[in-house]
């Protein structure tokens, strides 16, 4: 067996998976997106751009997604970074593993059930009731974009914490001593050494969370009360309710293209930020 054929053999499972789970479905979606809806739903072969022309009908869903996905990513980052920093830099090494496990523990339960828990926390008998007890009356949290944001941050926090944690954990602590030795206060050391050194982790975490948020539908459906509508929710309705496969495919294809464009732009930005750095490894 030649080296080349061995390599091909090694790649075969991944290649087959890639073909069956990604290339073929995407091709089908692309073909469907130029078709038409059947009378009782489904797909009728055709070649028309009508479905793409109809995209503005889902503009609101795209707008919501394009606002809430970056907002959710940013919010996750702002909460995850201090946590990851504490775990990696400050936490007592004896407790580090325990604390890390605590970060993962929620992942043992389905996101569905965890999101349901938030219905009760954010509902009238939860946090608003506590606020009412201290005199802040009639706070409505559940079924708002804010509730969706909370659900997103809660659901995706570990995905943000881990890359940053790994990055900070690997950070040579002697660099922090060196910075201090050279006259930088702890805060300036953070800004000039820790933060720039953890950029790869931040970039990875943001990418992971952002990509998943672009396709999100569960959290807005549960915590947005059906009023906060992502592209993912539009797709679920198009395929399962109105059974408009052609238009659904056009929306899906547009989402994929949008994601590709955004992620490519993002990767280029990160590359430029860490231009000559050897240790910018994104994934």
């Amino acid at each position: 067996m030649t080296q080349r054929s061995r390599n091909l053999l090694l790649l075969a499972p991944a290649g087959a998976w890639f073909l069956v789970m990604l290339v073929i479905p995407l091709t089908v979606v692309l073909i469907f997106s130029f078709g038409e809806r059947g009378a009782a739903g489904g797909y009728v072969p055709a070649f028309t751009l009508d479905q793409y022309a109809n995209l503005p009908a889902r503009w609101a869903a795209f707008k919501n997604t394009l606002i809430l996905a970056p907002a959710g990513t940013l919010a996750s980052l702002l909460i995850a970074y201090p946590l990851a920093y504490y775990l990696a830099v400050r936490a007592d090494p004896r407790w580090k593993t325990v604390l890390l496990v605590l970060v993962i523990v929620p992942f043992w339960t389905s996101i569905l059930i965890r999101s349901y828990a938030w219905i009760f926390l954010l509902g009238g008998r939860g946090i608003p009731a506590l606020l009412a007890a201290i005199g802040i009356e009639d706070v409505r949290l559940i079924n708002t974009p804010f509730a969706v944001l909370i659900g997103i941050v809660y659901g995706y926090l570990p995905l943000m914490v881990f890359p940053i944690f790994v990055n900070l954990d690997r950070l040579d602590k002697r660099l922090l001593e060196a910075s201090s030795d050279l006259g930088a206060s702890p805060w300036r050391t953070f800004l000039q050494v820790t933060l720039p050194m953890s950029l790869p982790g931040i970039a990875t975490g943001c990418l992971l969370v952002f990509i998943l948020l672009m396709g999100e539908f569960l959290i807005p459906a549960i915590l947005g009360g059906g009023k906060v509508f992502f592209v993912g929710n539009a797709l679920v309705d198009l395929f399962l309710q109105s059974r408009n496969w052609a238009f659904g495919s056009a929306v899906a294809a547009t989402l994929v293209i949008l994601m590709l464009v955004t992620v490519t732009a993002y990767m280029r930005l990160i590359r430029r930020l860490g231009a000559q750095r050897e240790d910018v490894a994104l994934m």
Binding site: A178, L182, M197
Partner: peptide, 27 residues
């Protein structure tokens, strides 16, 4: 340490990998 007029050459140098040579020295 950051208030002491004392500087150290570290065993494994502890140079900042995200900075150039000049930026390291001027730190």
């Amino acid at each position: 340490p950051f208030r002491r007029p004392v500087n150290m050459v570290f065993q494994h140098y502890a140079l900042f990998p995200h900075l150039t040579v000049a930026q390291n020295i001027g730190y």
